[in-house]
Design a protein around this nucleic acid. Sequence first.
DNA 1: GAAAGAACTTAGTAGTTCTGCA
DNA 2: TGCAGAACTACTAAGTTCTTTC
Length: 754
Amino acid sequence: MSGDYSHNNNQIDCGPRNNDPHKHKEKHKEHKNKDHKKDKEREKSKHAISDHKDPSDKKHKDKEKMKHKEGNADKHKDKHRDKEKRKEVKSADGKVKKEKENGFSSPGHVKSEPEDDFYHSPKQEKTLKREREEDFESEFKPKKIKIENDKAKGKKRKQENEDVKPKKTKNNKKGEVADGKKKGKKEPEEKWKWWEEERYKDGVKWQFLEHKGPVFAPPYEALPDHVKFYYDGKHMKLAPAAEEVSTFFGKMLDHDYTTKEVFRKNFFKDWRKEMNSEEKSKITDLKKCDFNEINDYFKAQSEIRKAMSKEQKLKIKEENERILQEYGFCLMDNHKERIANFRIEPPGLFRGRGDHPKMGMLKRRSRPEDIIINCSKDSKHPKPPPGTKWKEVRHDNKVTWLVSWTENIQGSIKYIMLNPSSRIKGEKDWQKYETARRLKKCVDRIRSQYHEDWKSKEMRIRQRAVALYFIDKLALRAGNEKEEGETADTVGCCSLRVEHINLYPEKDGQEFVVEFDFLGKDSIRYYNKVPVEKRAFKNLQLFMENKATEDDLFDRLNTSILNKHLQELMDGLTAKVFRTYNASITLQQQLKELTSPDENIPAKILSYNRANRAVAILCNHQRAAPKTFEKSMQTLQAKIDAKKDQLSDARRELKSSKADAKVRRDEKSKKTVETRKKAISRIEEQLMRMEVQATDREENKQIALGTSKLNYLDPRISVAWCKKWDIPVEKIYNKTQREKFAWALDMAEDDYEF
DNA sequence: GAAAGAACTTAGTAGTTCTGCA
DNA sequence: TGCAGAACTACTAAGTTCTTTC
């Protein structure tokens, strides 16, 4: 893990989601800022920890200032080093190597993208020059593109405009337009390297945005007459509104949700709202409702779809492709960009995770009148379906979304945004890792600061220090306060309650052990027994004194207090950055530790997956073990056994042919020996692959690697590792991931250091 | 300065497509 | 060629953080 710092003993196989041993008690009430009297007494009586201004505070601040100064000096040195590094390097073959900046390179050439006929706008010229964002951290400096003279600008502009000109897309396969690749064409067309361009400043996200608007869910299609709903054993024909909602439930009959009391109650309440007065008066008990025919009908439909002929399937695929081409892309600042989710969420029953109080509620159908469109004033605005109107068309270029609407369950806003491969998402991602790298430079200072802080006389400072210690050491999430009764009862670091930890002065031969047991994001259980520093332990004892189990552990702390403090320690620092930093640094360290030069490619990939797994465990990224896991492991094991038999047979054969060759001493028998030797090494190779696969699969049973790979691991670490060990990057990142991390693939060299 | 609202990232799951093997 | 299982994608819930409002 991350040096001696992140000791994470997360036990992944600690039971399924929601399997919290202590049933979550009734939600506690506002513990923050509450009952000050009680707190003060507590503090006074014990360790004379004052909640008031600490006279030593000023001293502290001065000290802090000094530290900051030191930090700045370091920064300066680093900058200097970076500058040195950035100088052009000539490689042995005389080629100018890419200029490096924090391990990346950036030749300032003009992009050439495929032309396309999707959008054309006369307004593109002004978008060409983006100004540099001034406050952008030093590490996140794309190389300044050489300043173009007017002539050059004109040339670039021309090329950019050509980017959006018609492109023949006959027989296009999925993604080809986006990729700018044509089948059969060997030379890959160059993609837009947005990371070599200037960024906008002042929060501007784009200058020009044009899109076709969202795709709505298809209208409800009534059930055929033979599919019947029964109430109390009697057939009942429902009016379309109630029937539609009944199908939402009927489709889910095989799902666990429909057995949950809360789900059933919420569904029934909302369903009744959709019934006419006759239906409402008759249907009063969900237990008497029989949705089986509806369930069977949808299952049959699914079978029919599966059994379709190739031609029929192809037709559907083509239609989907057409919709994708029409609605799945937008034009942002001269570049055609893929939209992530261009469909409005269809109506259905809300599937809240864990013990969500709103599960089963009806998610209503969104209409054009609910939809806000965001695009350029001077673009071709998307048209609402005939006879309808948008709620609003706005032109806000300080946000990244294209479409938004408010959902009816929690009243939150939903957005249509761009794909992770887009410039707008990529820049943000890159910036995220640069912030984490800046944390690397000052993390020691921050750590010594919180080690000081937990001796403070002020309770709030001690709490802040211990919480930060956990966020840093265990990669816990910040833990915002949540509205009671609105969501599942989950917590993060700042919102931990007394009931979520147990303290053991000594456990299993270790001192000062803290046992964490709580439900985190998505109601995934976090269970970890971890030895902590004595001061942290003693502080926890103090924080828990005279508190009830449902009280907040850190009653003088919340995420905004913590983040404000972090902001003072480092510009742009928030609790979340620690997770990114610890994940990435762990990957880098693990890769160094686990990769041995003599191993072959599959073994190296196993090492990579193990490093990735270490991060996933640190971040508590779990998944349900695949339903077919045991069976597929058995199958694989059987194959391994068979391969082993095959190997021993082959060895036996080799032995006998060697003996044979000794006697005969002819060419033919010599050849046989060689052939059998080759066969053996082939079988050994196959066996080794299978065994590696089995190990990997077993270790991965309940761990999800994807989340950390996509969100926490600086891709440049992986790219550098691939380059260093000659591993094809395709073995680590699939196509989508390579598109998302195109910037990293382009800029990271084999010596990249996070 | 706190609360509410908005914007955006992170997350697991369900459904679909691809791949390798018998 | 068909099937099983792996790999990938789409979907959308659930977080965090930033911004606005009062």
